[in-house]
Nucleic acid binder design. Structure first.
Lengths: 186, 186
DNA sequence: GGTTGTCTACCATCTGATAGGTAGACAACG
DNA sequence: CGTTGTCTACCTATCAGATGGTAGACAACC
């Protein structure tokens, strides 16, 4: 913990925000979890908006790294697409958390502008990744890949929301299966 | 305003919660909007949990009344289904608000138990309505109507979330259109 | 006269944030 | 070598504002 406090703060804040949102983030609890004092968090992140933006940024970076790894491991675009829902399943499983960007999207009206910017960037990055795989897999035509990618992402965000309300990963799995049956997901 | 304060409180709280969630609800702002003092709200709703549960309950009742009216006006189940997305479109249009239940689902970890119960009840009621229309319209077999209804609801919740993050009803419309094209919605 | 609804006046708690201090690492200078 | 100054990363102590909630007075109404 003494090793690199800033990283520890980011990691803890990421977890907390996925469970309680931006409004649920608070310096004292975060400090206690990391093992320092709240004033020290202000040293690394002067304001809550700074912290929120940094967390959202880190979340996006981690997610993109995971998607790139997923694509690298998968034999083709279709296989990568099939495994896309797993990305979010993991958070539900570990503490009934959800996609940070989806949570923050709900909190839209209370977000500092830099935080909101990161949220939108996360979504655009996901849409771009999805659109690439969709086109490459030949599921949609090149020019229809983006709207379809947006639909996929929105549908998955909704599934997380529903599953979280019941604190039940099974609900998420069932919804994903339903999307597949309806031809929404490959 | 003096006419029926309790109703006015509920209405204002419903609007506020659709924009800022349960955590965003606060007695002082609510009182100011209604034109009374915060202590008076405590008279009608002793605790915040009571207020939250009452708001969620009212939201569910209003929504069900709207759905019943929709079904009564529509010539058949298919027509009613086609107009289902409009229910949520309205909130987005009026102040970039979203479905209260979806918002509260995100706040799952911070909800008093009675509030959470109402959220789940709202979802079950919507699923039941959707399943009925889906079966009646012959879109799915009777026994597959419920899982499909859940998928429809989750997809629409996700669309609201995405649209809200961009404060753009057009995004919602585009996503609904995408769902239709993918065969997810009639 | 009791019930109902609202008020004024508080209170305890939590929140983000600031001021000011301190211990240690490190480099520069003489 | 040792003194000096600077920087980093933390600390203690405190603040102002917001929040949910309570007590008790008061007036209107039945």
């Amino acid at each position: 913990m003494n090793a690199n406090a800033k990283e520890a703060i980011l990691a803890a804040a990421k977890r907390a925000a996925q469970a309680r949102g931006y409004g649920g983030l608070n310096f004292r609890d975060l400090a206690a979890e990391v093992g320092i004092k709240s004033a020290s968090i202000h040293y690394h992140f002067p304001t809550k908006a700074d912290l929120g933006a940094a967390v959202a940024r880190r979340y996006r970076e981690d997610a993109m790294a995971a998607l790139d790894a997923l694509r690298a491991e998968a034999p083709d675009a279709l296989a990568a697409l099939r495994r896309y829902p797993e990305t979010f399943r993991h958070a539900l499983l570990a503490g009934n958390r959800m996609c940070l960007a989806s949570f923050l999207a709900a909190e839209h009206d209370d977000l500092p502008e830099p935080v909101l910017r990161e949220v939108l960037a996360f979504m655009e990055a996901n849409v771009a990744w999805l659109a690439r795989q969709l086109a490459e897999a030949g599921i949609t035509a090149e020019e229809q890949a983006e709207p379809r990618a947006r639909a996929v992402m929105a549908a998955i965000a909704g599934a997380q929301l529903m599953a979280r309300s019941r604190a039940d990963v099974g609900a998420y799995d069932a919804l994903i299966a339903g999307y597949r049956q309806a031809g929404m997901l490959p």
